[in-house]
Amino acid sequence: MKILMKSVDMIFSSSKDGIITPLRFRLSEDGEESRIVKIDRIIDRKEEKLAGNPMLVFTLQSTIDGVERIFEMKYEVNSFKWYLYKM
């Protein structure tokens, strides 16, 4: 997996217990039309607090171009931003 750290638009759900679940995001690659990627499976979720900055790190699985891919996304709690971290 390569580090991309690309900010993306995300639709996610937040349960009444405060559990955040990413659902689908918009991936726009340079020069290409953006497309929607649906999250098929959450493989792992963990919290990190590097530099005192809390982030939720998800290991996810989606089907992109007919290929099942595993990648990592980060949710930065302070800025409410989602990033495609590694793919």
Binding site: I3, L4, M5, E48, L50, A51, G52, N53, M55, Y83, Y85
Partner: peptide, 13 residues
């Protein structure tokens, strides 16, 4: 160190 840790968290190589 703090700057470095923050940058690494944000994907710096």
């Amino acid at each position: 160190s703090w700057e470095a840790a923050y940058r690494l968290q944000h994907g710096a190589s």
